[in-house]
Design a protein around this nucleic acid. Structure first.
Length: 663
DNA sequence: GATGACTGCCC
DNA sequence: ATTCTGC
DNA sequence: GCAGAATGGGCAGTCATC
C-alpha cells in the first residue's frame, strides 16, 4: 500500500468515521496482501484497482470488507458484482473548457481496460499499426496518458496511443521487470486511417436536471437512485410509472438517465386562477424547464396523482442501459449499449425520451466545427452543454471522472459564458455553517475566504450583493488581497500570536472569545477618523479598506464579518447565460426597489422573470480576474444581470400581464 | 399557523 | 457544482 | 493526474419558538 492513508478506495463522501474505519480495514487487507511472498508493487496496485473497481460496482463497504477478509481479492471479485437493486457508481464525465481541449482528450481517450496490448479503442482503426515507442518519449513511465498528451500536443493531430504492457494482467508483471522506459510499449500512431477515423463520438445534450440510475427489478419493481446513490424512488412515483410504460419487454434492467423538469402539456386546468404562472408558458408547453424548477419538487408524499400538479412535472431522458435481463452490459461499447437501450425502451410522449444526440465520425479537422454546432444546438434546446461520449468505450462505474465521457458546458466556453464584472462590497470570513465559528477554515484560515460581491445600480446608486465567491482564487491572490483589504493577513492559532508578540489581542486569552480582538485589531484603534478618511478617498491602497459597517449604498441581507469600501471590479464567471442558470436568490436583494426602476428591469420584474422580493444570484460563481480597467460604474448592473434572463428566449410581449400582476 | 435556524441533498 | 494545491 | 480541501447556489423538510 502506499502510505497515503486509507482514502484511496473509498470516495470522499464515505469518509465518515465508520466508513473510514472500513477503509482502513480494506487498506489493511491490501497491505497484508502486499506482504505475501511474490507480491510485487504492481500486483498490489492492481489488486487495489481491482478492489476499487469492485467497490464502484457494488458500493457497499460491508460486502466488500467481508469478501476481502474471507476470500481476499478473489472473494471481492466474486461477491462485489453488479446487483439489481443496488446502485453502482455512475460513470462521470471529465469537464473540458474548450472544444480544443475536448478534441485533444477524445483523441487520447481510450477505454479503461485494454486487451492484450491492444486498446479497444483501436477497433476503430482497421489499420492496426504497431510500433515501438521511440526513445524520444523520455517521459514515458508506464503512463500512457502522459505520452498521449505529449504527442498530441506536439503535433496537434497526430494520434499516438500507447498501451502499457501491464494491460494484459499477468503478462505485464513479468515483461515489466527490468524494463527500461517505453521499451515494451506498443504504440498506435497516426496512420492516415487513425487520423481520419479518430473521432467517433456521440454528442448528446447535457440536460440540466438530476442524474438518475433506474433499476427495474423483477416483478416490475422500480428503484431510482441519485448520483450519490441515495434512493429517491419516493420522490418520483411518476417516473417509476413512466419507465414501466416505456419498457418494451418487461425484463430486469438498469438505466442511466437524467430527470428534467418540464412544463406539463395538460396543465390548462386552473388557468384563470394560476395567473402567476401564465406568462410565456403557453408557448412553451411540454418544454424543458430550469433546474431550479426541478428543485421545487416535493420530497415527501409524492404520489403519481399529485406529482405533476402539486409538484413539478418531469421527463426522463434515457441515455444508457447498463444491465439487461441476466447480464451486465457495462463492458459493451457505448454504441452497443445504446442500441439495446433503444430496443428495450420506447419513448413515451412527454414522459420518456432518449437523450438527444448525434454521432460524430470524422477527422479531427472537421470535428471542431461539428462539435461547436452541436454545442450550440444543445444550448438552444435549453441544455447545459454537451456530453461527448466515446462510442467504443465501456461504462466505467467510478468515483473518478472518465476520459471517455467529456462534458462541455456553455459557461466554460469563453465566448459563450457571460462574465460579470462586480464591484467588491464586503466579505465573509466563514462558511455557510453559522455554528461552526467564524474564522475562515483550514487552508484558508489566514485569509478572507468567501468574498461577497455586488452589482452596482446606477439608477439607485446602490451596491446590491449577488453572491459569495470562494472559487478561482489562488493562494497568492488571497494573501495579497487579504492584506490589501484588511491591512494584513489574519492570524491563526496561539503560536503565531506569540511570534508576533506585538501587543494587541489578549494573547493568552480564550481561543474562542478572541475572534473580535484578534481580527479587528487595527480598525479598533485607528477608529473613526481614519475610516472616514478612507471613506472619502477610497484610493488609499495599502492600509486596507475595511469599514466598521456597511458602506453607503450597500444592500444585502448577508452579514459578512468584514465590510469593505467598494473600490474595484472583479470579474466573476457563473452559469448565467440563460434563465435556466440564473437564479432567484433570497439573500441578495438588489431588486428591492425594482418597481421604481425603469425600462427593461421593471419589465422583467413584472413579467415574473425576476422576483422583486428576492434578487438574482449566480450558480457556480468563480473568480476570473481583477478588472483594473473598469471603474465601479462600469461594473455589471442588476439590469444587465436581469437581462441575461432574456438572452436565449425570444423577447416576449406581454404588456397586459403587467397589469395583471399589479392588481 | 408563521418564522427562522439548521440539515441534507441536488447541481 | 468549481477551483486550486501538493504529492 | 489524482486526492483533498474549501465552499458557491437553491430548495424541501424538520424542529424550536413566537
Amino acid at each position: 500500500m502506499s502510505e497515503r492513508g486509507p482514502s484511496q478506495i473509498l470516495p470522499t463522501s464515505w469518509q465518515s468515521y465508520q466508513s473510514r474505519a472500513s477503509a482502513t480495514l480494506i487498506d489493511a487487507q491490501l497491505y497484508s496482501i502486499s506482504k505475501r511472498e511474490g507480491a510485487t508493487p504492481d500486483a498490489v496496485r492492481s489488486a487495489q484497482e481491482e478492489v476499487r473497481h469492485c467497490y464502484a460496482l457494488r458500493p457497499d463497504v460491508r460486502v466488500l470488507v467481508e469478501a476481502l477478509l474471507e476470500d481476499g481479492i478473489k472473494g471481492v471479485k466474486q461477491r462485489c458484482t453488479l446487483h439489481l437493486g443496488v446502485p453502482m457508481q455512475p460513470m462521470l464525465a471529465k469537464a473540458c473548457t474548450s472544444i480544443q481541449e475536448l478534441l485533444k482528450r477524445i483523441l487520447g481517450s481510450m477505454p479503461h481496460k485494454a486487451k492484450r496490448g491492444w486498446c479497444e479503442w483501436c477497433e476503430w482503426c482497421d489499420a492496426g499499426c504497431r510500433v515501438q515507442v521511440p526513445a524520444s518519449f523520455g517521459e514515458y513511465k508506464y503512463n500512457r496518458r502522459l505520452l498521449i498528451s505529449r504527442s498530441v500536443s506536439e503535433s496537434s493531430l497526430q494520434l499516438c496511443v500507447v498501451v502499457a504492457p501491464k494491460s494484459g494482467r499477468g503478462a505485464g508483471r513479468e515483461s515489466r521487470k527490468g524494463a527500461s522506459e517505453g521499451e515494451h510499449a506498443v504504440m498506435l500512431h497516426g496512420c492516415g486511417i487513425c487520423v481520419s477515423r479518430t473521432v467517433q463520438t456521440a454528442n448528446a445534450c447535457k440536460y440540466d436536471g438530476q442524474r438518475a440510475q433506474i433499476h427495474v427489478l423483477p416483478g416490475s419493481t422500480v428503484k431510482i437512485f441519485s448520483r450519490k446513490l441515495d434512493d429517491m424512488t419516493y420522490k418520483y412515483p411518476d417516473v417509476v410509472k413512466a419507465v414501466l410504460r416505456s419498457s418494451r419487454m418487461q425484463v430486469p434492467c438498469v438505466l442511466d438517465a437524467e430527470i428534467v423538469a418540464v412544463v406539463p402539456k395538460e396543465s390548462n386546468t386552473g388557468e384563470a386562477e394560476s395567473s402567476k404562472d401564465l406568462e410565456g408558458k403557453d408557448s412553451t408547453k411540454g418544454s424543458i424547464e430550469a433546474f431550479q424548477s426541478l428543485a421545487t419538487r416535493k420530497r415527501k408524499n409524492v404520489t403519481e396523482a399529485n406529482a405533476a400538479t402539486a409538484s413539478v412535472a418531469v421527463k426522463v431522458f434515457l441515455f444508457d442501459l447498463l444491465f439487461l435481463g441476466e447480464e451486465p452490459l457495462i463492458s459493451l461499447p457505448f454504441h452497443h449499449r445504446r442500441e439495446k437501450l433503444r430496443q428495450s425502451f420506447a419513448e413515451v410522449e412527454d414522459l420518456v425520451a432518449y437523450a438527444e444526440a448525434e454521432d460524430l465520425e470524422g477527422s479531427a479537422g472537421t470535428a471542431e466545427a461539428t462539435l461547436e454546432a452541436a454545442l450550440r444546438r444543445s444550448v438552444a434546446m435549453s441544455c447545459e452543454g454537451l456530453m461527448v461520449k466515446h462510442l467504443g468505450s465501456g461504462y466505467e462505474p467510478s468515483t473518478k471522472r472518465s476520459d471517455c465521457w467529456l462534458k462541455l458546458k456553455k459557461d466554460y466556453v469563453e465566448s459563450m459564458g457571460d462574465s460579470l464584472d462586480l464591484p467588491l462590497c464586503g466579505k465573509l470570513t466563514v462558511g455557510r455553517i453559522p455554528i461552526g465559528g467564524w474564522r475562515g477554515s483550514g487552508r484558508k484560515s489566514r485569509w478572507v475566504s468567501p468574498w461577497l460581491l455586488a452589482t452596482y445600480d446606477p439608477v439607485e446608486g446602490t451596491f446590491g450583493s449577488v453572491c459569495r465567491v470562494m472559487s478561482g482564487f489562488s493562494d497568492q491572490f488571497y494573501k495579497e488581497n487579504t492584506i490589501r483589504y484588511l491591512g494584513r493577513e489574519l492570524q491563526v492559532g496561539g503560536k503565531v500570536e506569540e511570534a508576533h508578540e506585538g501587543g494587541l489581542a489578549a494573547s493568552s486569552g480564550g481561543e474562542e472569545a478572541d475572534e473580535e480582538e484578534d481580527i479587528e485589531v487595527e480598525s479598533a484603534d485607528s477608529a473613526a477618523a481614519e475610516e472616514e478618511a478612507r471613506f472619502m478617498s477610497s484610493r488609499s491602497g495599502s492600509v486596507g479598506m475595511q469599514l466598521r459597517s456597511k458602506a453607503e449604498g450597500v444592500e444585502t441581507l448577508e452579514q459578512p464579518r468584514f465590510w469593505f469600501q467598494p473600490s474595484e471590479v472583479w470579474e466573476i464567471r457563473g452559469a448565467a447565460a440563460d434563465p435556466a442558470l440564473l437564479v432567484n436568490c433570497p439573500r441578495h436583494h438588489h431588486f428591492s426597489k425594482a418597481f421604481g426602476c425603469e425600462g427593461r428591469l421593471a419589465f422583467l420584474v413584472m413579467s415574473c422573470l425576476v422576483d422583486p422580493k428576492r434578487g438574482l444570484s449566480l450558480r457556480f460563481p468563480r473568480f476570473i480576474r481583477k478588472r483594473e480597467d473598469k471603474r465601479l460604474d462600469q461594473a455589471t448592473t442588476p439590469q444587465q444581470l436581469a437581462e441575461l434572463c432574456l438572452q436565449p428566449r425570444a423577447l416576449f410581449e406581454v404588456p397586459e400581464k403587467m397589469d395583471l400582476k399589479h392588481s
